Amino acid sequence: MMQLDHIHISIAAQQLTGFQAGKVVCCYPVSSALNGLGERSGSGCTPRGEHRVRARIGAGQPLGSVYIGRRPTGEVWTPELAAANPQRDWILTRILWLCGNRPGFNRGGQVDSQRRYIYLHGTGDDQPMCEPLSHGCIRLRNEDMLELFDSTPVGCTVQIDAA
């Protein structure tokens, strides 16, 4: 199985590109934060800069599995479940938990991506891609998240840029 060594996320293009040995091996549409770019805790923004995958969560869970506090609830997302719980921010399928690599910018203090619980994760089928709508995380289609998860090891670098 292919293992990525770098992921680049373009906020302008709302696209994630995966690399192996400098070559593009996958591209997926994403949805970043409705509040735009920023690193501060509580901002609801997507943090910029270089990160790394700190943890991979959800291996073996079903497609559309629901997570709260990084733990599967036993639920599987459906339009009916979403309609019955309109207040929930759906974190689905798998989680790649990010850790900032730049102290004072996206690591430590009030700008710590890990403590802000910034993830790459799946989202409901009713959510549009290529439109900033998240609470800070990077959302992907569930099928895309499953593929990305299977090819992304802990430690993989993730660069998030405005361009």
Rank of each mutant, 00 (worst) to 15 (best):
I91K: 03
Q14P: 02
C45V: 10
D161G: 09
N35W: 06
M145F: 04
A59D: 11
H135L: 06
T157N: 13
A163I: 06
N85A: 03
V53G: 03
R107K: 09
V76P: 01
L92Q: 01
A163E: 12
R52D: 05
I118F: 07
F105I: 09
G44A: 13
D112P: 06
N106Q: 14
G104C: 07
T123M: 08
G104Y: 07
A55F: 04
E131K: 05
R115E: 04
C99A: 14
G100P: 00
K23S: 12
P132K: 07
D150Y: 00
T123P: 02
S151N: 15
L133A: 09
L81M: 03
G42Y: 10
H121E: 05
M129F: 04
A83T: 02
G60V: 09
H6S: 10
S31F: 02
R116D: 04
L4R: 08
K23M: 07
P47R: 03
Q3M: 12
S10R: 04
Y28S: 04
G38Y: 05
R71W: 12
M129H: 05
T73W: 10
G155Q: 15
E50R: 07
G69D: 15
F105H: 07
I138A: 11
P132W: 08
L146H: 08
T17M: 12
L120V: 09
Q110F: 11
F19T: 04
G18H: 12
I11P: 02
N142P: 01
N106P: 10
Y119M: 06
G104M: 03
P79T: 11
C137Y: 05
R40H: 14
S151V: 15
S113R: 09
G122P: 01
P132V: 05
C99F: 11
N101Q: 07
S43T: 06
G22C: 15
G136F: 00
G36C: 12
M129D: 01
C99G: 05
P72S: 14
C156A: 15
S10L: 12
R56K: 13
G104T: 06
P132E: 08
R56A: 05
D150T: 05
D112Q: 11
R94A: 00
V66Y: 02
Q3F: 13
E147S: 14
Y67T: 00
A82H: 00
C137I: 08
G124F: 10
P128K: 07
A59Q: 15
Q20Y: 10
G58Y: 00
I68H: 11
G42Q: 11
M1T: 06
F105E: 09
G22R: 13
E50W: 10
R71P: 01
C99S: 14
R56E: 00
I95F: 07
L34P: 01
L37P: 08
Y117W: 09
P86G: 10
M1R: 05
L92S: 00
N35S: 14
T152Q: 14
W90R: 01
W90M: 02
R116Q: 11
S113M: 10
I11D: 15
L96Y: 02
P128A: 08
Y67Q: 02
H6Q: 10
G36P: 08
Q114R: 10
P132S: 06
Q61A: 10
P72T: 14
Q61H: 03
P79V: 14
E143V: 15
T78K: 14
L140E: 03
L96M: 08
F149C: 04
D126Y: 13
M1S: 08
T73C: 12
V24K: 15
V158N: 14
P29A: 11
G22M: 15
P29G: 09
P103N: 11
A59E: 15
I11G: 08
P47T: 06
I9F: 08
